[in-house]
Each structure stands twice: as C-alpha cells, then as structure tokens.
Amino acid sequence: MDGIVDHTMIRVSDLEESLEWYQTHLDYEEKDRHEGEDFTLVYLGPEDMHDDAALLELTHNHGTDEVEIGDAWGHIAVRVPEGELEAYYEQLMDEGVADYRDPESCGGHYAFVKDPDGHEVEIVQRSPDEGALWSIDHTMIRVEDADDALGFWTRKFEYDEVGRWEADSFANYFLEPRNAADEAMAVELTYNYDGRSYTQGDGWGHLCVRVDDLQDDWDKLQTREADDYREPADCDHLYAFTRDQDGHEIELLERDPAADSLFPF
C-alpha cells in the first residue's frame, strides 16, 4: 500500500474569494466541483498538471463566515523554476498579494505568502521536470512525536523517508510513496523539540491517499492498527478516513481515471 497523495483539502470562508486568489495568483484552474446540501467542494490545479501531481481541494461549508487556522496545520508548498524565486515572488507582490516572508528573509531559498483565510503557501524552487509551475510540492503538518509520526507513515502507508533537516530547535522530515514520480507531492512532518502541543482548528482538512482497492487497503490499515475513524461502509464504500497519532485526518480514495467526475459521488 504505497499510493500517492491525491489531494490536500483546506476549508475556506469565502469560496469565490479563494477561487479568485488561487486562479489569479497561482494560475490554477477549476478541475471539478461537487455541490452538497450544505457544502461545496472544488478541485484546483495547474492547467498542465501531471497525472501523479496532487490537487488542491477547497471546501466551503455554507453559512461559514470564518475558519480557524490551528497550529497543527502548516502549509502547502508550490513549485517555481530554479533561479526564479525572486521573480515570481515579485510577480505576486505586483498582483497585490500581501508580503509575508520574502526570499531574503528565508535565505534566498524559499518564500511564503498567505491566501485570503491565512493559509500559508510556501514557494520552493524545483527543476522543470519535477512538476508544473505552481504545482504542489509538499504539504507540511506539525506532529508532537517524531518517532510516532514517522512510524505511522512508514509502517502503515509504506512511505519512505526521502529527506530530513534537523536544526537546533526543530526537525523537518519528508516522506513519499515508494518509487514516486518526480511530480508527486511529499508529506513534510515538522517536529519542534520543546514538547509543545497543537490545535487542529477547522481550516485544516485532510490529506488524501489514492489507493488501488479501497476495501483491501482499508483492511491492511486495520491490520496495521490504524485508527478506525470512518470505514468504507460508513462512507457508502466511496472513500474512507483514518487519523494519525496527532489527529490529522487521512482520506483513502479509489479514483477511476476514466470516470466523468473526479469525485466518487
């Protein structure tokens, strides 16, 4: 069981404002939309995104005027070509995006902006063969125990640790499915050494792992003692959800590439 990350879901307070922000500044296009009784889901991504690249899912609960950004939720990171970080950051500034953390303040290696709800978007440099412009490079979440978190992803989902960076007060660990394409999204775990705890908030939604066989892969997770949060039968056998040791939700989704809709409904 080593499926790629299919999408990252975040909640937004004003769907049209968020759609305009991502479509204007990151050149995302709407890939699909589902209108529920009291919510709307929209998949977004670059026009020429790779089949193994991750989508961004925006969820808007109708009647919601504000979302809470908890500190367990970190950010998504999007790609720009190597050597062009400053140029693309200045482009965002010229378009009216708020100046949050510019390249100079980040040692020239990356930068950060925020979307209308305060979701952080990191800008990282990658070679052209590692994914389309503005495609999602990784999603970062904070964890309270690095050993438990690494064990969760390596044992239950069969992900490999592909990189780490250890500083004086924190460490970052990057995990990917085995033999993942260059365009696939990584999961970044951030562990702070001071023993702090985190709040989830409702602005952070979930990660979704694309699986080959929903029931079979769910059964494997249960054998590996994953949290039985929302089993396939509870979700009309369309998807399922487990949770990691910190309460981060992970959806399992069996996607049919030939289907008319990206959603399983």
Rank of each mutant, 00 (worst) to 15 (best):
E176S: 12
E130H: 12
H206V: 04
Q125G: 00
E90Y: 05
E249F: 07
R33G: 09
D216G: 14
R126Y: 11
L19T: 10
D65R: 15
N61V: 15
E120N: 13
D6P: 07
D14H: 08
L85C: 07
G201R: 06
D228N: 15
L15S: 05
M93S: 13
D32R: 02
E29L: 14
E84M: 01
G163C: 01
K156F: 07
P46N: 08
D52F: 15
D51P: 12
E122F: 05
C208Y: 06
L252V: 06
T64C: 01
E35N: 14
D194S: 11
A53C: 09
E120I: 13
E82R: 06
H62Y: 11
R11L: 12
M9N: 11
L189V: 04
L133K: 00
A184Y: 00
V12T: 09
D145W: 12
M140S: 14
Y100C: 07
M93C: 10
T190H: 01
A167S: 11
V97W: 01
D137M: 04
I69M: 13
D65L: 14
A146Y: 10
V187K: 04
D244H: 00
H119F: 05
Q245E: 13
L92S: 05
P128Y: 06
M49W: 04
R33F: 08
D65S: 15
D145P: 11
D99V: 02
E35G: 12
T8D: 03
T64S: 06
E122V: 10
D145F: 13
D236W: 10
H206Q: 11
G201S: 10
D137I: 00
Y198G: 09
H248K: 06
W218C: 02
L133P: 04
T223W: 14
S105I: 00
R126F: 08
G205D: 03
F112W: 05
G96C: 02
R126V: 00
